[in-house]
Design a protein around this nucleic acid. Sequence first.
DNA 1: CGGAGCCCCTGTAAGC
DNA 2: TGCTTACAGGGGCTCC
Length: 266
Amino acid sequence: MPELPEVETVVRSLAPRLVGQRILAITTTPSRVFRGQQQVITACLPGQQIHQVQRYGKNILLTLDRHRVRIHLGMTGKLLFAPAPSTHPRAMLALEDALLVFDDIRQFGRFELLPAEESGPVLGEDALEIAPATFAARLRERRGAIKNLLLNQVFLRGMGNIYTDEALYLARIHPLCPGFLVPRRKALALHTSMRALLQEAIAAGGSSISDYVDASGQRGAFQDRHQVYGKEGDPCPRCGAAIRRMVVCQRGTHYCPRCQRMPSVR
DNA sequence: CGGAGCCCCTGTAAGC
DNA sequence: TGCTTACAGGGGCTCC
């Protein structure tokens, strides 16, 4: 499931091969990933040059001559350069020097056309860029559970289920702890561990749990360094207590019941 | 604001 | 072995 590090890895593998290239042709198969824009997309993309490839949270933005393409990988979306194998191609872009395929098994992703200057919905600050003090101050303003806040892209952009569980574990914060009840010291610790975690994951090429691969079809390596995600029942690497799993906003949530305590109410 | 619940979608794993 | 069912979850939506 692509989150910030996976999307960043994809963008890095795409950029050198896309910038400056002209889109010669595009073919699509009917899919909800186009949100009704399939006709417009096939009509508008050919002939335009790609000027920039950026990450905006978990979105990939391609800046063209007259438009911008916003790609979200959802759960199983991939951007692949031929000849990397593709099983569920939704869009195929013929470029001057490459063939790029947007593949998405479950179609939770999106491939949509935006006006040139737009980036889609306005999201919160990037998880890798937000300043520690700002992060702590924002948390203090909210009553919602910390896990929900970190997953909320309008609050903070880039974090997904896996890295949220890992970051909360590293900072020893219970996933259900309300934002304003996270002590400033722990909020700063969370900022530090989140940043380090994301950077290490990017350096490892992201986490490949099931489907994720970069644009060359390469899997990431960070899944081997997860401490709690997918580790229900395993001993906590720090204290040995059994890692627990619960559901928070419909997401499997993994944590150490001993290391990650709720603040005591008194 | 915030939480709960549902939906989309399909491959995989578990259960019978 | 083969069928059925549950589950995975990013994000968008409604409802209270």
